[in-house]
């Protein structure tokens, strides 16, 4: 199992567009992935779950990866969060 803290610096926070990107990546791996923010845990594979948290910019949230491809999943998610943070602001 891999546990790591992440932060979105994209100013609009984890709104529809970045969340869609993140969930899409999560869904291409079989490992179980849990997103935890302010004591609420949701699966990273569910778009509605991720959006329900309303994560703003510059706050810490925890991701856990558990499964056969947890290493690859972690790297892919790490990469997509870097991409999200570089998104042009609307």
């Amino acid at each position: 199992m891999i546990e790591a803290n992440f932060r979105i610096t994209y100013p609009d926070g984890l709104n529809a567009r970045p969340a869609t990107m993140l969930v899409a990546v999560a869904n291409s791996y079989s490992s179980k992935m849990i997103l935890e923010y302010q004591d609420t845990r949701v699966t990273l594979k569910s778009i509605m779950g991720v959006l329900s948290l309303g994560i703003p910019a510059n706050v810490k949230f925890k991701l856990t990866f558990d499964g056969d491809d947890e290493g690859e999943a972690f790297q892919a998610v790490d990469k997509i969060i870097v991409n999200i943070n570089q998104l042009p602001c609307k």
Binding site: D12, G13, N15, G54, I55, P56, A57, N58, V59
Partner: peptide, 17 residues
């Protein structure tokens, strides 16, 4: 409509923080 209420929630969360 959903996207709008999500934005308000993110804003509220970021003020709370």
């Amino acid at each position: 409509d959903f996207s709008g209420s999500l934005k308000r929630k993110i804003k509220a969360n970021s003020e709370k923080k």
